[in-house]
């Protein structure tokens, strides 16, 4: 593994290795002294060209717990044509002898493009509607932690499937690890041909949740979508919002995941978000461990 551009190019063993390393990393975050020396003297650059708080902070903490230096770069103030600027910016950052480049961009394919142009490992921290691989890894890690295994489990992904990089990466990771993946959402948010990824499209949230072990709720991007793809937030909430009544359709041991930040009362009710089956805060904790594992594994394989 030279870069982490998505879950799609990974095989089962590579995913398993990251999850196993993350298990060791999780223990480091529970210590009083939360730092190991393994990336001492290395530099991790977080190039976040789309606003993000938790993913950026998570990568920054991950780098620091491994003793790397973390430098954050955001897009504010940049006015040149994007492709040019990005390419030049990335090459300049790499020329300062950075060791890893973490990239978040609103356009799909930007991390892959930069990976071809810089000589250092690139981590995709979310690119447009393409992939968000570390989110999927932390989802899988959380499922393994809570339920012990992923193979044969039923995973329901609910919400805006078509515009979600979280959904796409989750579909790849759970199908690769042998789970049955179901998806549900408003017809305008269900991409055409999604069955080809090996998932089962459901016509209602009830159908998707029936007997599920894992429920992944997606964030509705109100700011982006209001009015266009569904009539109103209230109607979306009534039809696709997860509440305790719907949760009863899933297995008694079922867990609820959400990539955050949550829209309380829209895709998920407070009765569920704060209830026992919710693993939303565990996901945040596990996200640091998974990102530590990715940074550690990627920095080993340079020529």
């Amino acid at each position: 593994m030279k870069h982490l551009l998505g879950i799609e190019p990974l095989d089962r063993d590579e995913i398993g290795q990251i999850l196993d390393a993350a298990d060791a990393m999780l223990e480091i975050s529970q210590r009083e002294i939360k730092r190991v020396p393994t990336l001492r003297g290395r530099t991790v650059i977080n190039l976040f060209l789309e606003p993000s708080t938790r993913t950026r902070v998570s990568f920054e903490i991950a780098a620091k717990r491994l003793s790397a230096d973390a430098i954050n770069v955001s897009s504010s103030g940049s006015s040149l044509s994007k492709a040019e600027t990005l390419n030049d910016m990335a090459q300049n950052l790499a020329a300062m002898n950075a060791d890893v480049l973490v990239v978040r961009d609103r356009t799909a394919g930007v991390p892959a493009m930069l990976a071809e142009r810089v000589r250092i490992p690139v981590v995709n921290a979310g690119d447009g509607a393409h992939e968000h691989p570390t989110q999927a890894l932390l989802d899988a890690f959380t499922v393994r932690q809570s339920l012990g295994s992923i193979e044969g489990r039923v995973v329901a992904i609910v919400g805006d499937i078509a515009h979600s990089r979280v959904a796409r990466s989750a579909i790849h990771i759970f199908t690769k690890l042998g789970a049955e993946v179901r998806i549900a959402g408003p017809p305008t948010m269900m991409p055409v041909g999604i069955e080809e990824l090996g998932v089962k499209p459901c016509s209602s949230i009830e159908e998707a949740l029936d007997g599920a072990h894992v429920i992944c709720m997606l964030r509705i991007q109100r700011e982006r979508l209001e009015g266009a793809l569904f009539p109103s937030v209230r109607e979306y909430s009534r039809t696709y919002g997860l509440d305790l009544r719907l949760l009863r359709l899933a297995r008694p041991e079922a867990i609820v995941l959400h990539p955050g930040p949550i829209n309380r009362g829209v895709e998920i009710g407070s009765d569920v978000a704060d209830a026992e089956p919710s693993r939303i805060l565990d996901q945040v904790t596990n996200g640091v461990a998974v990102r530590m594992a990715v940074l550690y594994l990627l920095t080993g394989e340079q020529a």
């Binding site: 060791a24 020396p37 001492r40 080993g300």
Partner: peptide, 27 residues
């Protein structure tokens, strides 16, 4: 203790061994 993340020969370059979980349930 898994000492992989403290080793001088892993801090250098090369394929990374996957560390095991350290279990130190006491100070």
């Amino acid at each position: 203790l898994d000492v992989t993340l403290y080793r001088d020969d892993v801090i250098g370059r090369g394929k990374r061994p996957v560390p095991h979980r350290t279990r130190m349930p006491f100070s």
